[in-house]
């Protein structure tokens, strides 16, 4: 059997061509990848900047990534963008509906939570009072689902072996949190007014990097021990053009180098150099984040029907 079906009339593992760059519509289908990426890191940044750090500006930026970036990317991607509202209609069965409904909840409650800080001080709650905390709790819960739902979207596709694993929601969640940390760090570097504990960012990052590394390793082992279609997906991740993104950007640039930089950071934790190291590490992690999503989409193969 040929490795993949490069013609319609062949019986072989078949590449998914709908989601991500290089699909049926080449560039435009990439908007979906951007949407997943922005949704993940935006929601992650909101969570990290509200729950772990108290950093409203960063939380706002994260929220804008979701509200503006992710939404716009989805609209660009859709075949009939004017009918976008229909996407919300089937939460009982469709992970897309679920994810997008919680995206809206995140935007509303996240925005509501931050609103008193940004001119809407007439609102009957503050970020500190009980009502505010309740609103935040709803927003956090929604953000959690936004971070994880795309993993479930992929995992629900039974015929794509490399996606049909519960590792994906976990991985996407971990990457969303890490992306959120990276975005928070970058915001912090550019925001001279902010006062955050750099150490805690770095420590958190270290934990996340280790977790992501472990998850990627599990994922590879999982593919290697699965059916032939999954093995072909793995071959594409490791040895085809996609390997540049998977190994080069995701693993080397997105995991290994940040790990090294974080280690260096432990020794050189003062001043401009520290900021620079943190910034580089954060940018690389974000590159790794989008790359791993891109690689997983690109390596998605339908099992042959016969």
């Amino acid at each position: 059997m040929p490795e993949v079906q490069n013609r319609e009339m062949m019986c072989a593992p078949r590449l998914q061509q709908e989601w991500g760059f290089g699909g049926r519509r080449k560039i435009r289908d990439g908007a979906l990848l951007i949407a997943l990426f922005l949704g993940g890191i935006g929601a992650g940044q909101f969570v990290v900047s509200t729950w772990i750090f108290n950093y409203p500006l960063s939380a706002l930026i994260g929220l804008l990534f979701v509200a503006v970036g992710k939404s716009a990317a989805h609209l660009i991607y859709l075949g009939r963008p004017t009918r976008f509202f229909r996407l919300f209609l089937k939460p009982r069965t469709s992970w897309i509906s679920r994810g997008l409904i919680f995206m809206v909840i995140l935007i509303i409650f996240g925005g509501g939570y931050l609103a008193p800080l940004y001119g809407f001080d007439w609102l009957p709650w503050t970020t500190e009072d009980l009502l505010g905390k309740l609103i935040l709790a709803v927003a956090l819960m929604a953000a959690f689902i936004v971070m994880i739902y795309d993993g479930f979207v992929l995992a629900s596709c039974k015929s794509i072996s490399s996606w049909h694993t519960m590792l994906l929601p976990v991985m996407f969640f971990a990457y969303a949190i890490a992306g959120g940390v990276a975005m928070t760090a970058i915001t912090f570097i550019f925001d001279s007014d902010a006062s955050l504990s750099v150490e805690s960012i770095v420590s958190l990052d270290l934990v996340l990097l280790a977790a992501m590394g472990a998850l990627v390793a599990f994922y590879i082992i999982n593919l290697a021990s699965s059916d032939i279609t999954a093995k072909e997906s793995l071959r594409r991740l490791l040895f085809s053009r996609t390997a540049f993104f998977f190994i080069g950007l995701s693993i080397l640039a997105g995991l290994m180098i940040p790990l090294a930089l974080t280690a260096m950071h432990q020794m050189e934790s003062e001043g401009a150099i520290a900021s620079l190291l943190l910034g580089i590490s954060a940018v690389l992690e974000l590159a790794g984040d989008i790359s791993i999503r891109h690689s997983i989409l690109k390596a998605g193969l339908h099992a042959p029907v016969f």
């Binding site: 078949r14 998914q16 709908e18 989601w19 049926r24 519509r25 991607y77 859709l78 075949g79 009939r80 963008p81 009918r83 976008f84 229909r86 996407l87 469709s94 897309i96 979207v153 629900s156 596709c157 039974k158 015929s159 794509i160 998605g300 339908h302 099992a303 029907v305």
Partner: peptide
């Protein structure tokens, strides 16, 4: 009249039966 072209179904169908037409 209802489809928005998100193509979740195209990806989910194990038989390659669905085609998105821009």
């Amino acid at each position: 009249k209802l489809c928005v072209g998100c193509r979740y179904c195209v990806v989910a169908c194990p038989y390659g039966a669905r085609y998105f037409v821009e």
